[in-house]
Design a protein around this nucleic acid. Structure first.
Lengths: 225, 225
DNA sequence: CTAATATGAATGAACATTCATTCATAGTTC
DNA sequence: GAACTATGAATGAATGTTCATTCATATTAG
């Protein structure tokens, strides 16, 4: 009881306005919820679990979220936001060459900050409920459209002037996204024990196959041989 | 109440030994559970829902399964079994040509009996909980190993004698499986409205890219041009 | 009649949500 | 600057609901 009070006091101290404080506490709860969902699953996560993990009281959750579902929705939003920011940053860093840009986009999926088992577990926990809970779809819809358009644009740039294949930009984009998400599933279940690096290398090989004209640029470490 | 009794009576009539009867009722419950999971999600499915959908009493569930979890495990087993049987049948029908065999294997993912939204929804519902519930992993483990070995074998046959790429059979198999499962996710969320046929065509294009030496054999309708 | 099966009301545990109370801080007054 | 008040964040016990499981009873089959 005493420690809680102190923790609360410290949380209050960390400056910014009261609005900033509110944001911080919401993030604190969303982080705790993410951890719970990753280790217990959506089904077994209780508000009591989340509160305990956040070092807060159960009652505080309703101060910051209308309901448990609203908290979950915030978790999904946070994940989506983080991922979108990551691939956009990646594109900025990648320069102008189409192949480098596409490679950067795909690498984001296997980035150290993105491709963590706990986060992937949460992605799949939500995907496993999209049919039953349309609000989850709704959260992702905007991010997904943005993602898909960017990826299709990159694929179009890769295919421009190379019409030897029957591959369409949208189709190629769909395949690239599917491959990445499928590799995430592999990472999640851990069947083969492949790590982030190995998965990224596999992704590169698939890109090289899909866009043979630029295969060398997806060659990874461009093996010394 | 009366109709339930009649239903039970009819169920009992359908012959076979008592063991066959037991199997039939278990299947009846597993089917109902699959339907519930697909439409309500794992989280909101209750035994009352399952019983209602099966046209049975809640108490009967415990006659055929030790617990709700045991019922769910049976659902996952049924799905896995069905999928394994389907790709094996596909291989038998495909003959000896490696490309035809690989294509058949992949087509199974987009088969009418396999690639149904309700079934895909259930696959993802379970995948979304594999971390939290190791028993789900255990159910799939055997089927997955078999699946992966078969696919790696097919990829090895495709790559035999064509060492121009750095692609390894296991890596190629991983990519093919990831692509298929990623396309399933696309089908589940329905973002792009692609149907089974279109997804299968995309999968073919990825196969053609991964195994260019056999590209013509993945050409789909081998467009009249 | 006996054994096997089916039924659904009853049970109690688990859970999300509510809300009266506590308390630290900021603001106000003299 | 000291004393007092107002504010709202934080708390967790209490509440009412939901749900898996149980089991006494009813039904059917042999």
């Amino acid at each position: 009881m005493h420690s809680k009070v102190i923790a609360a006091k410290e949380a209050g101290r960390t400056g910014g306005g009261p609005a900033a404080h509110r944001d911080r506490r919401r993030k604190q709860l969303a982080d705790a919820a993410l951890g719970c969902i990753a280790s217990l699953g959506l089904r077994d996560t209780t508000v009591q679990d989340v509160a305990r993990r956040a070092g807060m009281a159960v009652g505080s959750i309703s101060q910051y979220f209308d309901s448990k579902e609203a908290l979950y929705t915030a978790v999904l939003n946070t994940l989506s936001e983080e991922f979108a920011a990551a691939w956009q940053r990646g594109l900025e860093r990648a320069g102008d060459a189409p192949a480098a840009r596409l490679r950067s986009f795909v690498r984001t999926y296997f980035d150290k900050g993105i491709c963590q088992r706990r986060k992937i577990a949460v992605w799949f926990a939500f995907w496993g409920e999209v049919r039953a809970r349309p609000q989850y779809r709704k959260v992702c819809a905007g991010y997904d459209r943005h993602h898909d358009q960017a990826l299709a644009g990159l694929c179009a740039a890769m295919l421009a002037g190379h019409h030897e294949t029957r591959l369409e930009p949208e189709g190629a984009a769909r395949l690239v996204a599917a491959m990445c998400q499928g590799l995430w599933l592999e990472f999640l279940t851990g069947d083969t024990g492949l790590g982030r690096e190995e998965l990224a290398r596999l992704a590169d090989q698939n890109l090289a196959a899909l866009f043979p004209a630029a295969a060398l640029e997806f060659g990874g470490e461009t093996a010394t041989a």
